[in-house]
Design a protein around this nucleic acid. Structure first.
Lengths: 216, 216, 216, 216
DNA sequence: AATGAATGAGTGTTCATTCAT
DNA sequence: TATGAATGAACACTCATTCAT
């Protein structure tokens, strides 16, 4: 899914998929719809979004939506897929570089920034994940990719003697990702009231580093 | 909210709330509806549950539902409120007792067991939390209570020299709760494929203990 | 299907079926809808009938239609089933009685009268039979019943030496029924221009009698 | 209508008719569409055929359809008109030749073969005849031609003393045509379950011959 | 209280036809 | 001619809530 992606790839994601546009004009219309969809989803959530909202926002005819997408779910899948790709850019860290602790901090900050930028969509994504199986799958794949990369890093650190080999690298990667993810969700999406952002981020870094036993 | 709760309390929670039953017979009908609601919600999720499903399951007339609840949301709030109370029984741990690490393990296991028992409802709760503001508030309150108790424990351990005072107790309580909560959610609700439960639970304990710097 | 029939029976016919009414009032509403449906179908054909037409005609709310029927097809099936029953009353001829030729004439006239009375619905029935498989089945059953009775009569006449035993009783019953049926269809429904009704009916009798070799 | 017919003639049939192609290339495109239309109609029926199905099948652009036909109905009329012509070739029997009974049998077999070859289209034709007035007219004309020829033959036989003059030649021609037509329809289109084809055809011949009182 | 019928606004999707290129 | 994108009216069906008995 990630990678080249684009309309054609996303089409496989959506059910029957409206054909990919063959002309320049079609490509523009399609892009307008995707952009409008994202904005409307952010504004109203998935459930309260009507296809009419999207087309009105995109200034295209109602029917044009179905020229490019077979359903509301289908556009959502595409919008979300793009988002996931952006969200996971950050963890493509250079293998070499600063200390592990510094890299953990950098990764967390990068993720935080991306999350904050996309907080509204992240809210909708969580919403759709609670009832759309197809979407759960898309999300699971992205998560698996990110966690795999984390686990690899932890294993490398274990071999380098920087992390206790007694830690279960894969499960730790999962658990720590869940910690960061859900903390940001509660904080940025559900509006959990916490003193301030800096303390939250510092604590996430801190706990991660301590849990892995890295040199701060 | 937690504590005695019951219909009267829940009634304040739900918008207008259906009249509390005055007769013995009414109380029984109401209870039948609540029980049926929980089962149907678990079976189909909130969005796909119809009032008719609930009344059919409860073997009461369609109209009877509205004798006791003003809306579908209202029963859900009551069902969820009861669940939250059960879920947070576990952390009413005795302040004294075994070592902190042992207490962390016990609390985690207790929460895991409760989560597993109620996994289906936890899924629905996450669903409703993504769009119902009123419900988000109910959940926030419960979470705040649980986190407050955790934070208190950490502070106690810090005062006892068992935990590094450099740790932000409240934020740590939040972050660790998010880790456990979301890991269980992904594992038990979204069906994330992980090798096995024991490794997951062990890692959650392990990371918590290491992050707090407790004596294993 | 034929026989006791009624809502309950018809419900099995329709897909998921809207519940049979439990109260007197419900029964009345349901009956109003069925009657209105027939009138609207006759007026506009199946394809051009909108559920809204039916409910408007029956003076009930749009939604009430779906209280009793799961779909437009379902009411149609019930209307048609009733019609088939009426249409096949005529051939419940007394086994004994006048001469075979007289009985052929009487049966044909009876069928003609019924057809004429219900010509509009017969048109719609033919329409639906061209695309609805479920309905084709219902119709096939009714036809099979009627043809079986005809075949039985022919066999009786063959045993009585009134009809040449060289005739294939069952196939003859089919072919002759097709002749009468389709002639009436073309005449009464498709408005085929023929000189006059009397000549058509006389010819149908005449050919049937001659084909079977009955004493006129 | 029958005879040379072709695009130009059919154009008069269809409402506004798409322009007849002026270029060689246009003629080819048009032909591709007509051929594709027939195949798609056979496959899915008139109602379930989409213009897009036809153009896709013909490998022409969606818009090209409307270059040649003003509507879905218009292509159908042309396809049907061609079919009718083929179907009625068979009864262009030489007036002289074998015995009347033999000619009846030959005509029936010829019609049967044609019907079987075109059974799918015959089904669609029946479908369209139930709602499209314009098409009913086209069909009526063809039927009138065929029946006229039959009636002529019967009258000839009456003058030759081979058929009882008491028979109403025209009505008999109609009724017997209806018998054959509808029997084949029920058998070949609606899939009526009858023992076997031979018995059906033999009975149709047999009854026709007996009804007319021909020498077998 | 209990029952179940009545209500009707709301919405995703289809598809023939028109049009710009 | 050919292409394929654009259009938008049309419609079946749902379901929370209200009401009459």
């Amino acid at each position: 899914m990630s990678g080249e992606a684009g309309p054609a790839d996303a089409a496989k994601t959506g059910a029957d998929a409206g054909a990919a546009p063959l002309t320049e004009r079609g490509a523009r219309t399609r892009a307008r719809i995707v952009a409008a969809a994202r904005e409307v989803f952010e504004e109203r959530g998935f459930l309260d979004t009507r296809v009419a909202h999207i087309t009105r926002h995109a200034k295209v005819a109602y029917g044009s939506f179905y020229t490019y997408f077979p359903s509301k779910e289908a556009v959502f899948l595409e919008v979300a897929d793009r988002l996931f790709q952006e969200m996971t850019q950050h963890d493509l860290l250079p293998a070499a570089g600063p200390s592990p602790a510094a890299r953990v901090r950098r990764a967390n900050r990068g993720y935080y920034e991306a999350y904050r930028r996309n907080a509204k969509m992240m809210a909708i994504i969580e919403q759709v994940a609670t009832f759309n199986v197809e979407f759960q799958e898309l999300r699971r794949k992205h998560r698996a990719g990110a966690i795999g990369r984390s686990a690899k890093a932890i294993e490398r650190w274990q071999r380098a003697g920087l992390v206790d080999p007694g830690i279960d690298a894969e499960m730790a990667a999962r658990a720590l990702a869940a910690m960061v993810d859900h903390s940001l969700y509660l904080w940025l999406v559900q509006g959990e009231d916490a003193p301030d952002t800096q303390r939250l981020l510092d604590t996430l870094d801190d706990l991660t580093i301590r849990a892995l036993g890295l040199q701060a």
